[in-house]
Design a protein around this nucleic acid. Structure first.
Lengths: 249, 249
DNA sequence: CGAAGGCTTGATAGACCTCAAACACAGTGG
DNA sequence: CCACTGTGTTTGAGGTCTATCAAGCCTTCG
């Protein structure tokens, strides 16, 4: 399953991602690109990290789409975040020994495994990189808080609109959008598990939003159509993403 | 409002809190205790940090009880976390310039203001302290994820039971419990805003839980009565709190 | 004593879940 | 080439849960 890695271009995505939230010097960027990475190719719906597991590596998403989730009794499931290429979905595993949730692929995905050892060494040598990782963790937390607001206090329409706005903007920030927008590879049941809803309800509201011309959804994908309309429908304010450009203001 | 600080014992709470999740050397502990702290005494229901604000200090809770929350149109509000003495409720302000939510007191509270400058200096000199803060941020994130699960996929009874279990255990971990358990100074509307419910519903389920002998609730406080029963009622598994003792295992 | 804040309780409406069945589509194997 | 299967979507019907509205109660405090 694991093949050696000959500097694939996707490794640059990590730099791009960190740069979107924190400034990095040239040497720091070079050091990040020099990290040893073992590429692992995975099918859709596979576990990268299992709830309760300990790991010796971090998983950099090179290509594909993954989520963090936790399964509960009676077949319930909660998805807590989505991650795109450039994200390290299990950065917390570097410091927190036991995983308190699972990380799994939603589509065929290539993952770059980086030894904890190498990351610790890198941070020891480059405090700026350590700061960037901390900042990434902080933004992660800010996104969780935004999701709490979303699930706790918004209507179903708002929740779905907000989720789409967030993912669209995050993809844009790291240069993933093709032409117009980004097609999220999400089944309706994935959206349901992310937003605390039933798949049936998601289906109905998805087509309501489609009828209003705000989104398209087909073949297990969703995408924003009317950005301004969607922002308004989801009460979306990107402050919480703490993107470099915004902070500079 | 601000008075000088003559080494109040509460400053030890920060060390105690960090030690509950990460080991600290003696010199690191001393350095933490030597931080310059300006004590601020606040009434209940006051803002420590306002949504959208930038700050030059971090707020260490010395005594009292605070929450992080965000207000939305139409009078809706979501509480995203509760914090007890020893917590730095706005640690993220050190790195993320604009606050994406508010921090406010729930009861009369004494806050220790620590200049960002001093904290940056401290972390530069003691990487172990920086690591502890990062770990604190990671645990913070883990707690947000647990709340997402709670709000997204649990019944009202389970949500309330889980919240109580978490707060009780967190208070115990930093030595806040008086004899048996800890009385949380929460109004029913606070619980509602934390769990995405209406105050009416919280009231009804609170007395259901009381009738089952699991909790007591009176005078704007709630407390666990039957720990084992409550754990079971809330599907509570403390792994996500990543307390030092558990991790060592 | 009156006012304010918080708790309690009842009635009602609407949102959302669950169950169930049909549909669409892609991939597979005879 | 076509049934067959699996996965995901769509739609309807019914019932439950929870929000909302409204009123009364209790305690504290000025």
């Amino acid at each position: 399953m694991s093949v050696p890695d000959y500097l694939p271009p996707e490794r640059h995505r990590l730099v791009r991602k960190l740069e979107s939230i924190a400034p990095l010097s040239d040497t720091e960027q070079q050091a990040l690109l020099a990290l040893p990475v073992t590429v692992q190719i995975m099918d859709a719906n596979m576990a990268i990290v299992r709830d309760g597991q300990r790991s010796q590596t971090c998983s950099l998403i090179l290509d594909g789409f993954v989520c963090r989730s936790k399964s509960l009794p009676h077949g319930r499931r909660q998805i807590m975040s989505f991650h795109t290429p450039g994200d390290i979905a299990d950065l917390q595993g570097l410091t927190l020994n036991v995983a308190d949730h699972s990380v799994s692929t939603l589509v065929p995905t290539r993952v770059g495994l980086i030894p904890h050892e190498s990351l610790h060494e890198l941070m020891r040598r480059y405090p700026g990189v350590a700061a960037a990782f901390w900042r990434d963790t902080l933004v992660d937390g800010a996104i969780f808080r935004a999701w709490l607001i979303n699930i706790g206090r918004r209507t179903v329409q708002q929740r779905i609109a907000h989720l789409l706005c967030e993912m669209t903007m995050r993809c844009e920030a790291v240069g993933l959008s093709h032409n117009s927008g980004y097609e999220l590879p999400l089944r309706q049941s994935d959206i349901a598990d992310a937003l605390g809803l039933s798949p049936v309800q998601v289906n109905r509201v998805l087509r309501e939003l489609g009828a209003r011309g705000l989104i398209t959804s087909q073949d297990s994908t969703v995408a924003a159509l009317d950005w301004e309309g969607l922002k308004q429908a989801g009460e979306f304010d990107p402050t919480y993403l703490h993107l470099s450009r915004e902070e500079a203001a």
